[in-house]
Design a protein around this nucleic acid. Sequence first.
DNA 1: GTGAATGTTCATTC
DNA 2: GGAATGAACATTCA
Length: 260
Amino acid sequence: MPELPDVEGFRRVLADHAVGRRIRDVEVFDSGVLRGVNAAGLRQALCGRSFGEPWRHGKYLFAPVAPRKDQATLILHFGMTGSLQWTAERHRFDRVAFTFRGGRLAYRDLRKLHGLRLAHDPQEVSQVVSRLGPDAADVSREELQQALSRLRRQVKPALMDQSVVAGLGNLLVDEILWRARINPHRSTADLRPSDVADLYSRMRTVLRQSIAAARVPPRKTWLTGRRDDPSGACPRCGSPLSHGRLGGRSTTWCPTCQPR
DNA sequence: GTGAATGTTCATTC
DNA sequence: GGAATGAACATTCA
């Protein structure tokens, strides 16, 4: 599930409900999601403290621990199935829960591909961020142009590479390329500046609308709304959609709108 | 039982 | 050195 818009939604959940409130308890139901920290360490770092204003870069969510003199930051990554929920109800896939007066915040994740880290100082945080390209919701057209022009790769895997631009996942990239009428197999080396300009403006639109919905909205007018239908037709031209694998990921495109 | 799933990382092989 | 590929991680669901 989680790409940039989803994680931005989780950021809002944390910001709206938990920031500034005393963390009364940290329950670890499954330590399989803890990375580089154990349950006792996490409890000790967080209990009695609170979260400061959370921020996001790409698909990572950073929750600074207050008071700031502690210099610690909780780093969350949601893998393919994670989420952050403000809910009183315990769910079978809740792996960690933070308890506050008046509610609880659950890190819920089916597959446990990623999870929670605790950075003890700003260096550890910048270490994580330094491996990422500019945030997709924040990057300028010039930056994107430059990042892509350095590569000679198929455009889809290039855009999904978090060190090129951070935050785009499988669904978003398919959606953006479809709107920009760029075939996912095309090489970044062959993109004209006008292609990148198109790509950029489509990316902005898709991100803005997806962030508002806290997900890639499964609308029938979007490619995303049709990709799971094996006999799906392009919402724009009606051609049967093509399906394949690219960079190891399932890929959907329109052979008419997105010629090679 | 099999394969696939909106992610990342590592090893291997061009 | 880059780029492409496949496996691995853990788990459920169709």
